[in-house]
Amino acid sequence: MNNHEIDYEIFGDDMQFVQVELDPGETVIAEAGSLMMMDDGIQMETVFGDGSSSGGGLMGKLLGAGKRVLTGESLFMTMFTNERSGKKHVSFASPYPGKIIPMDLSEQGGKIICQKDAFLAAAKGVSVGIEFQRKLGAGFFGGEGFIMQKLEGDGMAFVHAGGTIIKKTLSPGEIIRIDTGCLVAMTRDVDYNIEMVRGVKTALFGGEGLFFATLRGPGSVWIQSLPFSRLASRVFAAMPQNGGSKGEGGLGGLFDIIGGDR
């Protein structure tokens, strides 16, 4: 076991948070801004990259942190270490409505590939890197872009996604097609590609976009029902300046009430 072995508990339904229990000397890493609360005695430290390796010198750390920039993440992550003698707790909150998925990487072949903004927190020692898609079609047209995140190690990692989450286990050769934005994560052996929607009318008027993701087993795939991009586009479309309702019963009215509009 190279990663710290942490215990955890997930609270809530649609706006969840995960509470991690740290024994003395144990550490958990998390994305900047995800902290909800922590006990006295936990030390915070900001580090380049994921802090999974202490070697390599400054240049190695800069290169590791620079990879995170390609996935749209911050250069820095935060480490939370229990420096007291008893057990301590630290909690991390979901950034938007959805579910937190706990993943034991030792049970998933030591590697999970996920969408670039899905990672929430993990035991120290889990490496958070980038995964280049082998096929250009997946890169240029996939909802998650050419680059996805990879989580490697043998410890616990926590991934967040929107809406309801379903896990599909694919047998060898079994294929499933999903909306590109609904893909959350997959195990290392799943073959991932992008296919164009067949038929001009379906492509132009189907309302589902021009492309969908094709995943071929064996392996496991996690799928979300509400990608954040879809949620954001609906909220944006409902705003008054974009033609949405301006009445008190609409979203525009809610914004007026919150903003104290007179």
Rank of each mutant, 00 (worst) to 15 (best):
I176T: 06
F158N: 02
K168M: 10
D154A: 08
N242R: 09
T202D: 12
F212C: 01
L215Y: 09
G206T: 14
A238Y: 03
E174P: 00
I194R: 03
A237K: 11
L231T: 09
P227R: 11
L210T: 15
L151F: 08
L210M: 15
Y192E: 01
I175V: 14
V159Q: 03
K201E: 13
D179T: 01
W222N: 10
G199F: 13
I176M: 07
L151Y: 06
D154H: 07
K168S: 07
F236M: 09
T180Q: 05
R216A: 07
G207I: 00
K168I: 03
A232K: 11
G153S: 11
D154Q: 08
Q224M: 14
G162P: 04
T187D: 11
K201L: 14
F236Q: 12
D189C: 00
A157F: 02
N242V: 12
R177W: 00
G207M: 06
K201F: 13
F212A: 05
C182M: 07
A185T: 04
K167M: 13
I176F: 01
G155Q: 14
S220Y: 06
D191K: 09
T169S: 10
I175Y: 03
V190A: 06
P172Y: 06
G207Y: 05
T164E: 15
P218K: 06
V159M: 03
L170E: 04
A232F: 02
E208V: 09
I178N: 01
I166K: 13
D189N: 04
N193D: 15
F236A: 06
Q224W: 11
F158A: 03
K201Q: 13
I165H: 07
G173Y: 03
R177I: 02
A237T: 10
L210P: 09
A185C: 14
E208M: 10
G181M: 08
K150C: 12
G207T: 05
A185F: 10
P227S: 14
T187Y: 05
F158E: 02
V221C: 10
V197I: 15
M186D: 04
Q241F: 13
L204D: 15
F236T: 12
Y192F: 05
V190Y: 03
D191L: 08
T202V: 09
H160K: 02
G155N: 12
S229K: 08
R177G: 03
